[in-house]
Amino acid sequence: MNGCRLDRWAVDAPLTGICVERGGRYAAFAAGDGCVRIVDLREGEPALTTRSLTRGAILALVADCREPAFICGADNGAVYRVHALEGSRELARFTRAWPDQLVTHPCGLRAISEGLQVRVLDAGGQTVTGLGNHPSTVAGLAFDSSGRRLAVSHYNGVSLWTLDGRSGEPQRLHHRGSHLDLSWSSDERFVVTATQERTIHAWDLVAGQDVSLGPCMSKVKSISWSADGDWLLASGTDTVSCWPFSTGRLPPAAPRMLGRYSEHLVARVCANPRYALTAAGYNDGGLDLVSLAPRPQRHALASAPGRPVTGLAWSPDGNCLLGGDSDGRVFVCRFETDVLARLAWTGRGS
């Protein structure tokens, strides 16, 4: 594809986490070898700086509340804060639980799964509160935009906690089965989860309704909202499933199927935060950019064969895409101004 610069590295361990810090300048790759590798996205010839944290695996990585830093959980039970420039320190350590679910909010809160509980830390690393006990090990976490509510997914539904300093009972959103990854819609009307049953479950918090979407062809590993908040994108089928949520009513109309059809399913989706397009990573290592227009355009960034894509992330300004696969091949793709805008625009029709 013209108008972009693609840099690739091989880190020789499965990619387990990927993100750009909140300032948008530094990106990080976490891997199964216990290292976090940082790259400066503004450098002309980008290079990876490796931070070795543990002998085990890094399980998850997110941007920390404040720039330019990340936090990650490892399978030795430790949560590390990794500063892009200054070094790393241990933020917390759990004895009988893996911190494999982490979320942060710019207001200074970090929520980390600890078995059946969720530990909430403040900006200084002090424990603010412990939320629990959930019916099963916590499988997904998501703050709302204000950082006042935290959604926690688990077996048989989602718990919505209000973080107002008073410990109380959460609002329970019930639905049978195991709920995994979860996400708020941008207007915070909907909470959606990916489930063990290969479906997506959506709750309408205003109308008090809920609905199951799918089932997909395999377990849904990632869900993502389009920049305008109108579409819920999901992996798990042979194209990107694109569910319309703009009407504000459940159930949504039938999904649009975007991208290539092939025997290899979509493993990861990640909507661009600024333009009407999404990145899609496939089980064979293929990678596409797909516009969300009525006549969608598809551009292949990488073609098969390879290993399943295990992570995708955009920089906050939407001009830089990062990704990697289960063999540890990672990339940074920086787009020139207007390339993505044009791609999103084409196919809009008259």
């Binding site: 361990a13 499965p14 085990g56 494999d100 099963s136 195991s178």
Partner: peptide
Amino acid sequence: VRGDLIRILGNLAKRRDK
């Protein structure tokens, strides 16, 4: 199914070379 096993195996797969 064993939910804990799915989760633990999924995390072990991240250090499969060990």
